[in-house]
Simulated scan of single mutants.
Amino acid sequence: MDDEIAATIDEPTVDYSSYTVAQLKSIADESGVEYPSNIKKADLIAKLEEQA
């Protein structure tokens, strides 16, 4: 039963909205997430959340 409980607990989610676009791009670069240079903050956050 403990294994079932552990499997349903997700890692804490990151609140990307508190980061600047430059910080988000740095996180994306480190994570290997590709994005266009003119990406909007909301779109970059969505890409990072998809990758997580």
Rank of each mutant, 00 (worst) to 15 (best):
A6S: 12
G32W: 09
L48H: 03
P36H: 08
K47M: 13
E30K: 03
A28E: 00
S31E: 12
I39K: 01
T20W: 01
I9N: 02
A52P: 00
T8K: 08
V14M: 04
Y19C: 07
L24W: 03
I5Y: 07
T13M: 06
Y16K: 03
P12W: 08
L24I: 00
L44F: 06
K47Y: 13
A46T: 13
T20M: 00
D15E: 04
I39T: 02
A52V: 03
A42T: 14
Y35N: 06
I45T: 11
E34Q: 13
Y19I: 01
K41T: 05
D43T: 11
P12I: 07
K40D: 10
M1Q: 13
V14W: 03
D15W: 04
L44E: 08
Y19S: 04
K25P: 06
I27D: 01
K41I: 10
I9C: 01
I9H: 01
E11H: 11
S18D: 09
E11I: 08
S37L: 10
D3F: 13
A46V: 09
A28R: 07
D43H: 14
E34Y: 12
E34I: 14
G32K: 00
M1F: 12
E30Y: 01
K47I: 02
I45W: 15
I27C: 00
K47H: 03
M1E: 10
S18L: 13
D29H: 02
E30V: 00
Y16W: 09
D2P: 09
E34V: 11
Y16P: 01
L44G: 02
I45N: 10
I5T: 10
K25A: 03
A7Q: 13
A42P: 10
P36I: 06
A7R: 05
T20S: 15
S37V: 09
E49I: 03
P36C: 11
D10C: 11
L24F: 00
K47N: 05
E34G: 09
D43K: 11
Y16L: 07
A42Q: 13
T8P: 00
A6V: 11
E11S: 14
